[in-house]
Write a protein that binds this DNA or RNA. Structure first.
Length: 508
RNA sequence: GAGCCGGUAGCUCAGGAGGUAGAGCAUCUGCCUUUUAAGCAGAGGGUCCUGGGUUCGAGUCCCAGCCGGCUCACCA
């Protein structure tokens, strides 16, 4: 018999004994007077005499993290909400059943409730002297090892609950992620933005360049696409008079998986009527500075051994950045960056604009460690952005980089329907040349634009990537609770549970 | 999709010139009423990822595959 099956049988035998002693192995409501973090906050600094003088009865609960049995007494640590408190149990303070429960039937990972009073041990640790012990939930499988936690990356992702139990820093990462989202919501709400939800299943996908997931609706007998972006729906809402809207939700892109890409990822998109990309740059700087403070306590964030200052976000135009960050010999001149022949020598891309962006991505992108705004992008790569009045081959668009990755993309929205029609037609031509990711013609969106989209600025912020930066995480999987993995083969657990149940039933 | 690295007990990991598989934690038994990586004494536990091949003999060498990680490509 394998170790796991042996443990399974032992634990199921314990379940029967716990019941026989009058406890419930899968308990019931437990009204604790204080959570463990509350206990630590209230009494963490209280001295031994003070605790003895003001002896109060508390009820606490949590998962058993360590247990040290010493004959007629012993200690355990209970873990709740990421913090732990020691409890002390002794034979002469408990009923026979309670002591038996503690002595023979508690395993690491079990969830218990305890009532008692606080004291300090010889070594000074705050500890609950238990007068009543309650059983709340049994663990049937071995918990991860206590010294090293859970290291196996695959298990950490597949069984995130174990990761959260065993690795306190993982818990902190996801709490920080939650604070990031809360901070963004609060800041947007304070400025009058309205949160909305737009379709995830779309008949025509758009708003980004990516391959989609396709699904099927049976009753309507139509294929639908999981959205690659909410952009076109949010702008319809701006047309409808929701002048400040935002959505924080999932996008789905049928592309490769990497440390920076998960097929489903979370995006904040917000639109503000009557502003432009300059206005959004200023807003973004405030937004990111405050998010950094709310998430980490400081606008200066440590990332992979460097310090990123979200209080001072640099700004370069795309072409300035190429000159600034050029490392491969003497930098080109601004005239060369404007010269299609020069660009064609530097990139295999079809058009000068695409080639310029290609050069930027080769030369600059990974060097943008410090938070940086890059603005003024080539028109060809931005089918939904308004062009610059004085430079029609470029659009009023910027991206924000930090840690060498793109975390935001924003532009002044194109609001001329005839120009939008021409851009769609350019995309169709690209699609005919074989560009799988080219934008589709979206006449329904064109119709909406024909009713008048006010001058508007719109921005998307990649929440997962922002969370990576603000939690010092190297992989997007470390900030997504359940990243996509290939499915596991069948576990055979139901069969093992059935066998163990049959075996212990015979013993009983 | 390509390259590199990895997969040994429930967990964390050693080991391996080819010759019956190791530690710590966890589990079980015994002792222990202020311990805290509790301690002490003993015991059980393995498809060394899978399938082929070479060999008297493969966990170790070779090939293929599976799963994962990293890098690159695509992308945000």
């Amino acid at each position: 018999m394998s170790v796991e099956d042996e443990i399974l049988r032992q634990r199921l035998a314990s379940v029967r004994e716990i019941r026989a002693l009058g406890f419930s192995p899968y308990g019931h409501r437990f009204d604790y007077t204080h959570s463990i973090p509350e206990v630590l906050r209230l009494w963490g600094a209280a001295g031994a005499e003070e605790l003895d003088r003001n002896r109060t009865t508390l009820r606490i609960c949590g998962r058993i993290q360590t247990i040290r049995r010493m004959g007629k007494a012993g200690f355990a640590h209970l873990m709740q909400e990421g913090e732990r408190l020691q409890i002390y149990l002794r034979q002469d303070s408990l009923t026979a059943a309670e002591f038996d429960l503690y002595r023979r039937l508690l395993d690491l990972g079990d969830i218990v409730g305890a009532e008692g009073y606080l004291f300090r041990t010889k070594t000074g640790e705050l500890t609950l002297h238990v007068g009543r012990l309650d059983f709340l939930a049994k663990t049937l499988l071995n918990m991860p090892e206590k010294w090293h936690g859970l290291e196996d990356v695959e298990t950490r992702y597949r069984q995130r609950y174990l990761d959260l139990i065993a690795n306190p820093e993982v818990r902190r990462v996801f709490l920080t992620r939650s604070r990031i989202v809360a901070s963004l919501r609060r800041q947007l709400e304070e400025r009058g933005f309205v949160e909305v939800e737009t379709p995830m299943m779309q008949p025509i996908y758009g708003g980004a360049t990516a391959r989609p997931f396709i699904t099927h609706h049976n009753a309507l007998d139509i294929d639908l696409y999981l959205r690659i972006a909410p952009e076109l729906y949010l702008k319809r809402l701006v047309i409808g008079g929701l002048e400040r809207v935002y959505e924080i939700n999932r996008n789905f892109r049928n592309e490769g998986i990497s440390t920076q890409h998960n097929p489903e990822f979370t995006m904040l998109e917000f639109y503000q009527a009557y502003t432009d990309y300059r206005g959004l740059m200023d807003f973004s700087c405030e937004l990111l500075r405050q998010v950094a403070i709310d998430a980490t306590g400081s606008a200066e964030v440590s990332w992979q051994g460097r310090t990123l200052d979200f209080g001072r976000i640099r700004r370069f135009s795309l072409r300035e950045a190429i000159l600034e960050f050029w490392r491969d010999g003497p930098p080109p001149t601004m005239d060369e960056l404007r010269d299609p022949a020069w660009l064609a020598r530097r990139s295999t891309k079809a058009s000068p604009g695409e080639a310029l962006l290609d050069v930027f991505e080769q030369v600059v992108e990974e060097r943008l460690i410090e938070p940086t705004i890059i603005y003024d992008y080539p028109l060809e790569t931005s089918p939904l952005a308004k062009s610059k009045p004085d430079e029609p081959d470029f659009v009023e668009r910027f991206e924000i980089y930090a840690g060498g990755i793109e975390i935001a993309n924003a532009y002044t929205e194109l609001n001329d329907p005839q120009e939008q029609r021409r851009r769609f037609e350019m995309q169709l031509a690209a699609a005919e040349r074989g560009d799988e990711e080219a934008h589709r013609m979206d006449e329904d969106y064109l119709r909406a634009m024909c009713y008048g989209l006010p001058p508007t600025g719109g921005e998307g912020i990649g929440i997962d990537r922002l969370a990576m930066i603000l939690t010092d995480s190297r992989s997007i999987r470390d900030v997504i609770l359940f990243p996509l993995l290939r499915p596991e083969p069948p576990l055979g657990l139901a069969e093992r549970l059935r066998a163990a149940e049959a075996a212990t039933a015979h013993e009983g």
